[in-house]
Design a protein around this nucleic acid. Structure first.
Lengths: 226, 226
DNA sequence: CAAGAAATATGATTTTTATCATATAAAAGT
DNA sequence: ACTTTTATATGATAAAAATCATATTTCTTG
C-alpha cells in the first residue's frame, strides 16, 4: 500500500487540504486499481460507495442519450476526483466514467471523505470550489452546444485538447481520441466530425497523420471557435 | 425590516438549516429589493458582494453567446439562492439574472453567508447539494442540447414548464414566456420555435391562445421529448 | 382611438447537419 | 501473411434548422 502523503497528484486536487494524520488515515483505507483503456471505472446508474482519485491516465465522463449516442460531458485527468457529486447528492451516478488510456485510480470510501468534510473546512471548501468550477464549465459547454455550429465546436474542442492535455514532440495532440470520441465530445455525428476535420486539413489549419492531429494555425482555429 | 424567521420561502432553500439566532442576524443585514419584469438582478461579469434569495417571482439565468443570442441556462423561482457559485468560486458572475415577472429578492452579504459556512455544517451541506443538483441538471441539459432535435427539446421544455411552474385554472402554463424566451431556453431561432409550436398546435398536442400555451396531450409530448 | 412599435406567424430559400452508402486504410486476430 | 474486423474517409441524398422576407396580430403610447 503506497502512502497518500507522497502522492504527487494530491497537490492538484481538493485533497491538498488534508493534513498528515488525515493522509495516513486515508492511505489505510484506500484501494488502488489499474483500469485498462476502454474499461469503465463506474457506470451511469451505479451506486458509488466512495470517490475515485485519478493517479494517472485520462478518462471520459459520458452519458447515453435517448437517441442511443454517447455524449461526452467532461474529460478528466490526474489529480481529479470522480464521484463527488453522487456522494454529496446521495444519488447514483448520472454519468459513466470510462478510461481513455490505461489509468491508475485510488478508491476512497465515502465514510472517509464525509469525515473530512466534517472536520476539515478547507477541504470541503476545495470540493465546493471544484464543483462550482464544473458547474461553470457545464453551463459554458451547454451554451456552446446550443448556440455554436458544429464547425465552431470542433475548433473549440481542438484548442481545448491542446491546452488541457498538451502535445507530443511532433506537435500532435497528446490525447489521442478516436473520431467517434471527438464527435461525442462536440455532440455531432461521427461522419460530420470526420468531414469537418478533413475540411480543416484542406484549409491548412490542421494536419492529420493517421490518428494524430497537429494544430498548424492555432489563431485561426481560435477565431473559428467563436 | 421583515424577519427572515417568518419567511416561508426559507423552508425551500439551503437556508432552512439556519437556527433562530442565525436568522435574526441575517434579518439584520439583509436588504430587500423589488425587481420589475425585464430588469436585471445582476449581470454577467459583475462582481457579486453576496447572494440573492428569491422571495417571489421567476427569473432567468442567461448567458450571451458569441453569436449575439441569449441562451437561458436555468429558470429560478422562490426559495432559490442566486450567486452562490460566484461567491464560492470568488469569481464574477458567469450568468445574468433577469426578472421574468415582478420579483422580490433579499440580498444577503457575502460575509454573512461565509460565516454560516464556517459554523453551520448542515447549511454548507445544503448549499453543496443544491450546487450538485444544478450540476446534474446542467449536464442533462447539455446532453439534450447536443443530442436531441429542436422539436424534442421544445416538447421537453413545455413539460418542464408545466411541471415546474404549474398551470392556471384554464389549463394554460402559469409562466408566460415570449416565443423569443422559449427559443432561448431550447437553444434555437425564434422563428423555428414559433413554427414548431404551430406544428404542435396543428397536431392537436397544444392549444395557443395569444401568448398562452395549453398542453392538451401531455403523454404525446412526453413521448416526443425523447 | 389611432399610429407606431413589437411580437407572432408563415412562406421561401439557403445553410447546416444527419443519414445512408460505399470505399479505403489501419488494426487485430488466427 | 492473410483474413476479418474496425476505423477513417468521402460521396450522395435527405432532413433539420437558420435566415430572410413579409404578413398579421397584439401591445403601447401619445
Amino acid at each position: 500500500m503506497s502512502k497518500c502523503e507522497q502522492c504527487i497528484v494530491r497537490q492538484f486536487s481538493s485533497l491538498k487540504a488534508l493534513g498528515k494524520e488525515e493522509l495516513l488515515k486515508m492511505a489505510n483505507c484506500k484501494t488502488s486499481y489499474t483500469i485498462k483503456k476502454g474499461e469503465p471505472i463506474f457506470e451511469e446508474g451505479e451506486t458509488l460507495k466512495g470517490v475515485f482519485c485519478i493517479k494517472d491516465g485520462v478518462g471520459k465522463l459520458s452519458k447515453l442519450s435517448s437517441n442511443g449516442k454517447d455524449q461526452i460531458v467532461k474529460l478528466v485527468k490526474s489529480g481529479e476526483l470522480l464521484g463527488q457529486r453522487s456522494m454529496i447528492s446521495e444519488e447514483s451516478a448520472n454519468l459513466s466514467a470510462i478510461a481513455l488510456n490505461d489509468m491508475e485510480v485510488c478508491f476512497i470510501p465515502r465514510k472517509e471523505i464525509l469525515g473530512f468534510f466534517d472536520k476539515n473546512n478547507e477541504f470541503s471548501m476545495n470540493v465546493m470550489k471544484t464543483i462550482c468550477g464544473d458547474l461553470k464549465e457545464a453551463d459554458d459547454h451547454m451554451v456552446s452546444m446550443a448556440q455554436k455550429s458544429v464547425k465552431s465546436r470542433l475548433a473549440e474542442t481542438l484548442i481545448y485538447l491542446e491546452d488541457t492535455f498538451g502535445k507530443n514532440d511532433d506537435g500532435s495532440l497528446y490525447l489521442q481520441l478516436s473520431r467517434e470520441e471527438i464527435a461525442g465530445l462536440i455532440g455531432t455525428a461521427t461522419e460530420s466530425c470526420i468531414r469537418l476535420l478533413s475540411d480543416y486539413k484542406k484549409e491548412g489549419l490542421i494536419e492529420l497523420v493517421g490518428k494524430k492531429i497537429i494544430i498548424l494555425k492555432r489563431n485561426e482555429l481560435i477565431k473559428l471557435s467563436n
